Amino acid sequence: MTQRMMTGRELSQLGQASTRMASAQEQMTTGKKLSRPSDGPADTTVALKARAGVDQQAQFTRNANDGQAWLQTIDSALQGANTQITRAYTLALQGANTATNGQTAENALADEIDQIKQGLLATANSQYLGRPVFGGTTAGGSAFAQVGVTDASGNPVLDADGNQVQQVQYVGDGGSVSRRVGADTVVRVDSDGQSVFGSTADGTSIFDALDKLSAALRSSDSDGIQAGIQAMQDARTRISGAAADEGARMNQITAASNVASDNTLALKTVQSNVEDIDIAEATINLETQTTAYNAALAAISKTSQQSLLDYLA
């Protein structure tokens, strides 16, 4: 073997040793086994899939958090509505004693019923991030609104004081707001206002019932007051059903959120296994490659120091 060939081979080996040492140094510096696809094509495929899975689970978690916020808003609104309707029920029971209350007391009860109606209207228009939680997908800021009542000819209907009669109407839509919280799990996060508070279209809403109860109290209409008592009982039952439905959906989202958290942990473990180095192993590898490089460097150094006399000896 000629001197040139020997030198060429040694330089090639030195270059390979340098490359291996540089790779070991890069791994120690970055903490990653995979810096580019060529470092491990098969592992790169696994890592990319794991990263995509982590991103997907993170989105499910964000959706779940948003859905929980919607449902928490609904839960608070339903609790408030139940408190208000229960108070109206109590007032209706008091108003049933028309023979002993006197009209002044009945009027005072009616005034409080009117106040409860306004408070309940505000509750029914509860919002999350500017969107009414009982209004479906409406672009407006309210699920219910007070509008002036007109007759068949379009003329305003006036009360005893000459003011146009106001009636609560549903101004939301029939749409629903949903959040995908899992690969196969989509949960509705709003509540249908007319299912919760009754239909304003056919006059069976809680607002209509409160109007009728107020009018019955002012006129000492015993039958009307009894009807109001029953209407308040029905409304409380409806609210309780809505609360149970909201609770079930909250549980579904919570369970899905827990699954997303578990999946994220599992995927990050897979990602770490194929991407991250083992510090102890990487340290030993770097020391080994550094030693090999220094040995190759020393060997080529000796070869380059030979003279013509070394070959004539």
Rank of each mutant, 00 (worst) to 15 (best):
G136R: 11
G140K: 12
R87K: 12
N101W: 04
G154P: 10
A139I: 06
V147P: 00
T138I: 08
A122Q: 14
A145W: 00
A92L: 06
R131S: 13
A152S: 14
N101Q: 13
T123E: 05
A77L: 04
G119D: 14
T90P: 01
A105F: 08
A160L: 05
L129N: 15
D159E: 04
L158K: 13
G148R: 07
Q79G: 15
Q79V: 10
T123F: 00
A122R: 10
A110L: 11
A108Y: 02
A81N: 09
A124Y: 04
N107L: 10
I113L: 06
Q118W: 01
A108L: 12
T150Y: 04
G135D: 02
I85E: 09
D161I: 00
L120I: 09
L93W: 01
T123C: 05
T104A: 14
S126G: 12
A143Y: 03
L91I: 15
D161G: 14
G135Y: 02
L129D: 13
D161C: 00
F144N: 04
D161R: 09
D161Y: 04
L78W: 10
T104P: 01
G102A: 03
L158N: 07
D114A: 14
V165Y: 06
A92P: 10
D114W: 00
A143P: 06
L91G: 13
A92E: 06
V149T: 11
G80R: 06
G148C: 07
T83W: 00
E106G: 02
K117H: 07
S76P: 03
V133R: 01
T83S: 14
G95C: 07
L121T: 07
D114P: 00
Q84A: 14
Q79W: 00
G102E: 05
I85L: 11
T90G: 10
R131C: 02
T137W: 00
L78C: 11
Q115C: 00
S142R: 12
F134S: 05
L158R: 10
A122E: 14
G162C: 05
G162M: 09
G80K: 03
L109H: 10
I85R: 09
T86S: 15
N125Y: 03
Y128S: 13
L78H: 12
P132H: 02
A96I: 06
Q115H: 07
K117I: 08
A145F: 00
L129E: 14
T83E: 15
V165K: 08
A152K: 08
D111N: 14
L129R: 15
G95T: 05
A145N: 08
S153H: 04
Q164M: 09
T104R: 08
L129H: 11
A108N: 12
G148E: 12
A96V: 07
F134M: 06
T86E: 14
L120F: 09
D75R: 03
A92Y: 06
L129A: 15
Y89E: 11
Y128D: 10
D114K: 13
V133C: 03
T86W: 02
A143E: 04
T83M: 03
T86Q: 15
A88C: 11
E112M: 07
T138G: 09
R87I: 07
A96D: 12
Q146L: 14
S126D: 08
